[in-house]
Write a protein that binds this DNA or RNA. Structure first.
Lengths: 257, 257
DNA sequence: CGTTCTGTTGACCACGTTCAATCAGTGTGG
DNA sequence: CCACACTGATTGAACGTGGTCAACAGAACG
C-alpha cells in the first residue's frame, strides 16, 4: 500500500526532446508552442517497482503521462479479487476520469521503475482552453482505449482462456512494437521485456494464475511463444493470431482537429 | 441483418425543445447557439425494433444521438457468440470511435422503435472548432462510458453470474431514473419498461440465457425483483445492491470547460 | 390459428477454480 | 557463507459454477 512517488533528480527533460512525444497527448502541439504547454507540467516523478501511484478512492490533484516504465491499472473486489483494466506504457496518459474532482475509480501500481510527468488537474480546463486541440486529442486517446476496453470485455465475456491470453500477449507485442521497434528499453537478446507475472496476466484476463500457467505451458509446448523471467518471444505470430484474432488497427488513433 | 432506417415524418423537432437535451452532447450549448449546432444535424430517422442501425465493418458517414428508444451495441465472435458493450438510451451518442474513417468496430440494433438524430462525420471537426466546448463535452461523455465499461470488465472478469445480473439490473434502473424519473415512456403501472430479453442480459453479462433464466428465477423467489413481459420492478433495492455493489456515481458526468 | 420467439426446466458435462505441495530464483541478515 | 524468507512458477487431484443439449410451455404476432 505504500506510495513511492519522489521528485526526479536530475531535473526534468524538456518536452521538446521527449522520446515518447509521438505517442503522447501532446504529439500535435507544434514545437514552438511546447514551451507553453510544458509550463503546465508541475513535476517529474520517479516511482519504484511495486509502489503505488494512487489507490481507488484517492483524490489526487494531478494527472500523469508515463515517460518510461510500466504501470498496472486495476480494480479490487470486496473479496480481494483484482481485475486489471490496462497495462499503461510510455506515452500513456493516466488518472483522467469522468468525475474529475471525486475519488479515483481504480488503482495504479508500478511494475517497473517509472518516470512520470505530472499535470495539475486544476489547470486542465485552462490548458484545454489555450489548446482546444488537446481536448480533441485526449478524446481520441480515450476513444482508442475504449476500443481496447470493448475488446477485453468481449474477451472476458465470450472467449476461452487460451484466446484471452493469446490476445493479451499479441496486444502487448504490438504496443511495444509501436513504441520503440524493439529498442533497448523494451527488448534485449532474450526477447521482449514484458515485466508482468502470470498473476498479472490472470488478473487481466479474468482467470487464475494457475490456469494461466497451464495455458502458457501448453503454448510453449506448441512453439507459439517462449517466455521466462519477464521475457517474451512470439515464435509463431500467425498461429497465435489465429487464436487471438487481434487486429493491430485497434492501436491506431486518428486526429480529429 | 436488414437495415430499417427511414427519415422521420413529420419533420424533426427543434433541438431547443429536445426532451433529452439535458442528457445529451449538446446540453451546455446555450439556447441562442442551438440553431447553429442544429444546422449540423443532417436528418432525423426512425428505426423499427430488431432493425440494425449499422453493422461491424460498415463505414457510415453519420453519428447519432438517440432521441427515443433503446439501442443494443454489441460485438460478434467468429463462433457466433455475442457480447453486448452497452445498452444505449435516449440522450446517448453512438457511432463515435477512434478510427473515425475506418470500419465500425461494433454493431447497433434497435430493441424498440427509435428516433435518432444524425450528424455527418465529415463536419464533426468543423462543429468542434466552432464549439470547442463540444469536444470537452464528448470527452467527458466518453470518460463516463469508460468508467461503466471498466465496471463491466470487472464484473465479467471477477464477479459471479448473480452479481453481474444484479449489477446490470440496478444500472438500468438508475439510468432510467435519471432519464425520466419513471415517466410514461420508461414506466407504467406494471413497472419499469425494460425491453430486453434474457438473451440480451446473457450477452451483456457473458453468460448463457439458460443460466440467466435460473438466476432471475432465484432472484424472483427471494423477492429481490419481479420481472415479466419486458417489465421490471426492483422490490428490494438495498438487498440487490448488497449483491451488485452498484455505485450511482458512475452515471454522473462533470463539465470540464 | 399456426409460426416464431422467449421463457422454463432437467440431466449431464467441461472449463476453469480451489486447495495443496513443491521447486527455483533472489534477496536478506546472522 | 549459508539459513531463511519471500515471490513466482509448476504440477496434481478434487470440485463447482456455469455451459451444453434437449424438450416443452407460453406469449406474441401475422
Amino acid at each position: 500500500m505504500k506510495y513511492g512517488l519522489r521528485p526526479r533528480h536530475p531535473p526534468a527533460t524538456p518536452c521538446a526532446q521527449c522520446a515518447v512525444r509521438k505517442m503522447a497527448l501532446f504529439r500535435h502541439v507544434p514545437l514552438d508552442r511546447l514551451e507553453w504547454t510544458q509550463e503546465y507540467r508541475s513535476q517529474q516523478y520517479v516511482l519504484e517497482p511495486k509502489q503505488h501511484l494512487y489507490h481507488e478512492g484517492d483524490a489526487p490533484h494531478e494527472l500523469y503521462t508515463i515517460y518510461s516504465g510500466w504501470v498496472k491499472l486495476y480494480k479490487v473486489l470486496e473479496n480481494g479479487k483484482k481485475q486489471v483494466l490496462r497495462f499503461a506504457l510510455p506515452g500513456d496518459f493516466i488518472g483522467f476520469q469522468s468525475d474529475l474532482e471525486g475519488p479515483l475509480q481504480h488503482t495504479a501500481v508500478a511494475l517497473t521503475q517509472c518516470i512520470l510527468c505530472a499535470f495539475p488537474k486544476a489547470r486542465l480546463a485552462e490548458l484545454f482552453r489555450g489548446h482546444p486541440q488537446l481536448s480533441s486529442e485526449l478524446l481520441m486517446i480515450h476513444a482508442r482505449d475504449m476500443g481496447l476496453c470493448h475488446e477485453h470485455l468481449l474477451g472476458t465475456g465470450a472467449r476461452s482462456a487460451r484466446e484471452r491470453i493469446a490476445f493479451l500477449l499479441l496486444e502487448l507485442y504490438h504496443r511495444l512494437a509501436l513504441l520503440g521497434h524493439f529498442r533497448a528499453d523494451t527488448a534485449d537478446e532474450k526477447g521482449l521485456k514484458v515485466p508482468i507475472t502470470q498473476e498479472d496476466i490472470a488478473e487481466a484476463c479474468g482467470l487464475t494464475a494457475i490456469h494461466v500457467n497451464r495455458t502458457l505451458k501448453q503454448m510453449r509446448n506448441e512453439q507459439l511463444i517462449s517466455c521466462a523471467n519477464g521475457h517474451l518471444v512470439v515464435m509463431n505470430e500467425q498461429a497465435l493470431n489465429r487464436i487471438a484474432h487481434f487486429d493491430p488497427k485497434l492501436l491506431e488513433r486518428s486526429t480529429l482537429i
